[in-house]
Simulated assay, not measured.
Amino acid sequence: MLFLLRMLLLAVHFVIASVVGLLIGLCRPFNPDNSRLCARVYAVPAMWILGLRVKLEDDTVRDHVRSAVIVANHISNYDLMVFGLTVPRRTVSLGKKSLKWIPLFGQLYWLAGNVLVDRGNAVQAKKAMLTTTDTLQHKDMSLWVFAEGTRGHGKGLQPFKKGAFLMAINAGVPIIPICSNNYVRGMKLNRWHSGNIIIRSLPPIPTTGLSIDDVPKLLADCHARMAACIDELDREAGTTKR
């Protein structure tokens, strides 16, 4: 019963938050801080509705004042709300072009200045990457990427795609890993306290002086750091795989 009530409230909240986010986007279209504001509108009430307790240890990403590529692990559809608590100022994300067809949310996502990529069109994808590289270099903005490209559903960190690391090297900006425990393993939405989430950002990984040839090593280094961090967060939050 509590689960059904939560899903109903979450659906109503999603519609209301999407309308509020769309109004923010219409009042200040493509403002680089729209994503952070809209993320909070989704996240704060959603965590209360779902009964999730969130602990933020995100100093390195929150206090970073220069452009960066922020790489996060992708766990479930709830990530929109979970990671929405920690999106820093002047940050946009990289998303699938198909997102724009979601009523209300797709339009606010576009108006928030996020980058939509058609992964099935190599020419358009390359053009989007070049535009993003210019944004990182010259517009004092950061880019949020789920480098796995798909949800892990609590099965652990999946292999990374190289696009985020290419953009970071081309723009000469650091990579900031940010991790959450695999919270879906312990979510019990029929209980008042449905689970624990810990979000932790890691120290920036510099890319200055690196070339395209360094992408595999950079990708592997970031993946190893994040995998170790996620394992530690799972132990602390009690969401280790059984």
Rank of each mutant, 00 (worst) to 15 (best):
R200W: 05
T86E: 13
L10Q: 04
C222L: 02
C229T: 04
R62T: 12
F146H: 11
P206R: 02
D234C: 11
S98M: 11
K161W: 05
P206D: 09
L26T: 00
P204M: 01
R66V: 03
A220V: 10
I178A: 10
S142F: 06
H223N: 05
G152M: 00
D213M: 07
I176F: 03
T86P: 06
I24F: 15
I70C: 02
Y109E: 08
M226D: 06
F30S: 00
V41C: 10
M81T: 14
D63L: 13
D231H: 11
N181F: 11
D213T: 14
R66A: 13
M1A: 12
A39L: 09
C222V: 13
V215G: 01
R89D: 14
A39T: 08
V115S: 01
H64C: 07
K139T: 06
P88K: 01
W192V: 14
N34W: 06
L143S: 05
Q158H: 11
I197M: 09
R185G: 14
T135E: 02
W101Q: 01
L9T: 01
T86K: 08
C38P: 00
G172I: 01
A112Q: 12
V145M: 12
T150L: 09
L2M: 09
Q107N: 14
H223P: 03
V173S: 01
L23E: 03
I230A: 10
Q137Y: 10
S18R: 08
G95S: 15
N31V: 03
E232K: 12
H223K: 09
L104T: 02
G51W: 11
L218W: 00
G163I: 04
G156N: 12
V12P: 00
W192M: 13
S93R: 03
R90C: 08
L52F: 09
E57M: 12
M7T: 11
